[in-house]
Nucleic acid binder design. Structure first.
Length: 463
DNA sequence: TGAAATGTTGGGGCG
DNA sequence: ACGCCCCAACATTTC
């Protein structure tokens, strides 16, 4: 009986897994594998938090596969060539990935492996190369991308069922623990307690979100202390649940509960994820270089380790910024509204290059995703496609008052401020007795805003 | 998926 | 009664 290899990558699930289904339908025995391929990732080797998540997610997947998941580490091409030779496998199935380095690597493998490779769409709702404007160039603005490019095409396919019985085969390989994904200093333990990692947890999370937080999503998703965001991002990144599943399950729920408005907004957020991947696919330098070329001359401040560290550790003296940075440190996640505020502070108040923030998020976020992270940072910095205009500068006090009106989010993550009343919790320097153990604000926002606008003038008129 | 500065309007206090 | 000022509330413009 011939053998099919199913190469799991960013699709660590059994439900709605087209590569796995195709392998099943082939009637062959199935060898499921995972390869940790750091060498080919270049500068974008997985960050610390991502590795922790991966460790647990692989364990969960392996359990679903009755312990049959074979583990390898090293150059994927070398490993696959040897594996095919050793096992006599006759076909490889995988679901497509979209980071530039993975595309290049997979393309190379396809041409060198010498046997049939079947690849599938599983991580995106629309393939980036299919969504083009009439002139065959990629969209650079979200709304037409989504409304004309995506919505006017076919609706995303319905998710596939989990295969009932998989004809698994086992080989000896490394174990997941050999991958050394957990840190030596165990900072990860409290972080993972906030999550249920793995396919089961991902499906549970979607269900809980629909029950507890979907109604009022449109409005509530901006308020970090509320339950109105899905928190699916790490699960989606690792493919523990597919975007198709999220799209259709939310739709079913929304139609049954008359929540069409919230559905539109939730779908639109899934589409922002599509848009980020679309941009990265068509503009592979997105993680390194400003999308708008004139920003190459932007007068960023010199590297300043002291300021950068205060931002990283949540010691800027601006409560909403510090709360976000500490939420990130403690949970591997930050609410989206707060990401925008904290990111804006780094690039506009501190005038430090967005790439510094991108690197920190890459290392700390459980949902660290090359496309989303790069597109998000460029958006905030004002140098991205369809970006916020540079002069749109967030005021951390105003944003805090608007989106955390009771200060509940700030009090949760910055306990030094918990005793302040609502009038002072967003601007503790105004308190009659400022908190003793909280840093004074590291910049004057009004002055920092002026400096940022000054800096903008230097590039405004260049092409 | 901003905020601040500037402009406009209209009600009320007051001489 | 009337004009004037003040200023909150809202709208528009600018960065």
């Amino acid at each position: 009986m011939s053998l099919a290899i199913v190469w799991f990558r960013q699709d660590l699930r059994l439900h709605d897994n087209p590569a796995l289904c195709a392998a099943m339908e082939s009637g062959m025995k199935v060898l499921p594998i995972y390869i940790l391929d750091d060498g080919n990732a270049g500068a974008w080797k997985m960050g610390g938090a991502s590795r922790v998540w991966l460790h647990h997610s692989l364990h969960a997947l392996n359990e679903s596969l009755e312990g049959a998941l074979a583990i390898f580490t090293g150059d994927a091409e070398t490993i696959l060539l040897k594996l095919v030779q050793d096992t006599g496998a006759s076909v490889i199935f995988w679901n497509r990935c979209y980071e530039p380095w993975r595309i290049a690597r997979d393309k190379k493998i396809k041409s060198s492996i010498g046997l049939h490779v079947a690849t599938f769409q599983a991580s995106l709702l629309w393939e980036p190369w299919k969504i083009l404007k009439a002139d065959q160039t990629p969209y650079k603005v979200f709304t037409p991308f989504y409304r004309k490019g995506c919505l006017l095409r076919d609706e995303p396919r319905a998710p596939l069922d989990r295969p009932k019985k998989i004809n698994l085969t086992r080989i000896t390989s490394q174990s997941i623990n050999d991958l050394d994904l957990l840190p030596n200093i165990r900072w990860d333990k409290n972080m993972v307690a906030h999550w249920q990692i793995g396919e089961q947890g991902a499906r549970q999370r979607l269900g809980d979100f629909l029950e507890d937080g979907f109604a009022g999503y449109k409005e509530g998703r901006n308020y970090p202390q509320r339950n109105n965001v899905s928190r699916l991002s790490p699960h989606l990144h690792f493919g523990e649940i597919s975007p198709h599943e999220a799209w259709h399950t939310a739709k079913r729920y929304a139609l049954a509960h008359r929540k069409e408005q919230d559905l539109d907004n939730f779908h639109s957020e899934l589409a922002w994820r599509e848009f980020s991947h679309h941009l990265l696919y068509h503009f592979p330098h997105l993680p390194e270089k400003p999308f708008q070329e004139k920003f190459a001359d932007f007068p960023w401040r010199e590297y300043d380790g002291e300021s950068l560290n205060r931002w990283r550790k949540g010691l800027t003296g601006f409560p909403i910024v510090d709360a976000g940075m500490r939420e990130l440190w403690a949970t591997g996640y930050m609410h989206n509204r707060v990401r925008m505020i904290a990111a804006s502070f780094l690039v506009k108040d501190l005038l430090l290059p967005w790439q510094y923030g991108e690197e920190w998020f890459w290392d700390c976020l459980f949902d660290a995703d090359l496309a989303n992270n790069a597109a998000g940072w460029q958006w905030v910095a004002g140098c991205g496609a369809d970006a916020a205009p540079y002069f749109r500068i967030f005021n951390p006090v105003t944003q805090g008052e608007k989106f955390d009106p009771t200060g509940a989010y700030i009090r949760r993550w910055v306990p030094e401020l918990a005793h302040l009343d609502n009038a002072d919790v967003h601007a503790p320097w105004n308190a009659v007795t400022p908190p003793a153990h909280y840093p004074h604000r590291m910049v004057d926002h009004a002055a920092a805003r002026q400096a940022a606008l000054e800096a903008l003038k230097k590039i405004k008129n260049s092409a």
